[in-house]
């Protein structure tokens, strides 16, 4: 992972990545254990828990930017386009879709894409907000 980007310096259209990743069946079992989930027929031996792909994308975002104090993850969408087998070589790419500032807050939406050898296998969009530095100290 290259140097982290400052959340307050992100610009619309900026692309972060690509970042390479791989999840194996042991990772999937750890994820299921950590979400109090049970195994289901075929998973995780044949296909990874879909939201683990989302967690991977979000983790990539967390790794890619410097998380400012007070950052809130307010909304999230994901679409799982096809099952992904454990051990598949994956590439994550993040694109800053929107940046806005109002009422002392910086709001950002980031498009998330996970690809395997066939193309996109999971996509999503994360919405976050954080107090602008000048406003984060509270009233003067």
């Amino acid at each position: 992972m290259s140097e982290k980007r400052d959340f307050f310096g992100l610009e619309r259209g900026e692309v972060l990545g690509p970042y390479r990743a791989r999840l194996d069946a042991a990772d999937a079992r750890a994820y299921l254990d950590a979400t109090a989930a049970s195994e289901t027929p075929g998973s995780p031996e044949s296909w990874l828990p879909p939201l683990q792909l989302g967690a991977l994308l979000l983790g990539t975002l967390i790794d890619a930017i410097e998380i400012p104090p007070g950052l809130l993850h307010t909304g999230q969408s994901f679409e799982f386009l096809r099952p992904v087998a454990p051990g598949t070589s994956l590439t994550a790419e993040l694109t800053v879709a929107q940046i806005a500032e109002r009422r002392g807050l910086r709001l950002g939406t980031v498009d998330l894409e996970l690809r395997d050898a066939e193309g996109a296998c999971a996509v999503g969009r994360a919405s976050v907000l954080a107090p602008l530095p000048a406003a984060s100290g509270g009233p003067a």
């Binding site: 289901t40 828990p49 999230q76």
Partner: peptide, 24 residues
């Protein structure tokens, strides 16, 4: 959110992995 995805996985199995979508 993992509870939602697990609930849908239990209902639809691999179909959820092959074309599920969430927006929350």
């Amino acid at each position: 959110l993992a509870l939602v995805s697990q609930m849908m996985t239990e209902a639809f199995g691999e179909g959820w992995a092959a074309g599920g979508a969430l927006a929350v």
